[in-house]
Simulated assay, not measured.
Amino acid sequence: MSLGPYASFIVTSYAAAAVVIAILIGWVVLDHRSLTARLREFDRSGVTRRSGRSAVDS
Rank of each mutant, 00 (worst) to 15 (best):
I23F: 05
L30Y: 09
S58M: 12
F42A: 15
R38W: 07
A16V: 07
T48A: 10
L24C: 10
V47R: 13
W27C: 03
I23W: 00
L35W: 10
P5Q: 13
F42H: 15
S58I: 14
A22T: 06
S2N: 15
A16Y: 01
I25W: 04
D43V: 11
V20G: 00
A17D: 01
S13V: 00
I25Q: 02
S13W: 03
R50N: 09
V47I: 13
A18V: 04
R49M: 09
D31S: 12
R53S: 03
L30W: 04
S13G: 15
D43R: 15
V20N: 03
R49D: 04
S45R: 15
S51G: 01
S58F: 15
Y14A: 04
R50K: 10
R40E: 15
S8P: 00
F42P: 01
E41Y: 06
S45Y: 03
R33I: 05
S51Q: 05
G26T: 05
L3Q: 07
V56R: 14
W27H: 00
S2I: 10
E41L: 01
S45M: 09
V19T: 12
L3A: 05
T36Y: 10
S34V: 01
Y6K: 05
P5A: 13
V29F: 08
P5Y: 03
V56D: 15
D57C: 11
S8E: 14
T36H: 12
L30H: 06
R44T: 11
I25M: 11
A55F: 11
T36L: 09
R53A: 04
A18P: 01
S2W: 12
V28H: 01
M1E: 14
A15T: 11
I23D: 02
R44D: 10
G52Y: 07
S13R: 09
R33L: 08
M1Y: 08
S34L: 00
W27D: 02
D31W: 02
T48G: 10
V20W: 06
M1V: 09
V56C: 06
A16G: 09
D31R: 11
S51L: 06
R49P: 08
D57W: 10
S45T: 09
I23C: 09
D31K: 12
E41V: 01
Y6W: 11
V28Q: 06
S13I: 02
S51M: 10
D57K: 05
L3Y: 14
F9T: 14
G52S: 15
D57R: 08
G52H: 14
D43P: 05
A17T: 05
G52A: 13
V47G: 02
G52F: 11
I21V: 04
D57Y: 03
R50E: 11
V11D: 01
G46L: 07
S2M: 14
A17S: 07
S34K: 12
G26I: 06
A22F: 09
Y14S: 06
W27I: 03
L3I: 02
S8L: 13
H32M: 09
V28C: 02
A55Q: 13
I10D: 04
V29N: 08
Y14M: 05
L39H: 07
S2C: 14
D31L: 10
T36Q: 14
D57E: 13
A18K: 06
A37I: 01
R38Q: 13
S34R: 15
I21Y: 00
V29A: 14
A16L: 08
H32N: 12
R33C: 07
L39I: 13
Y14G: 08
A16D: 01
D57V: 04
Y14Q: 08
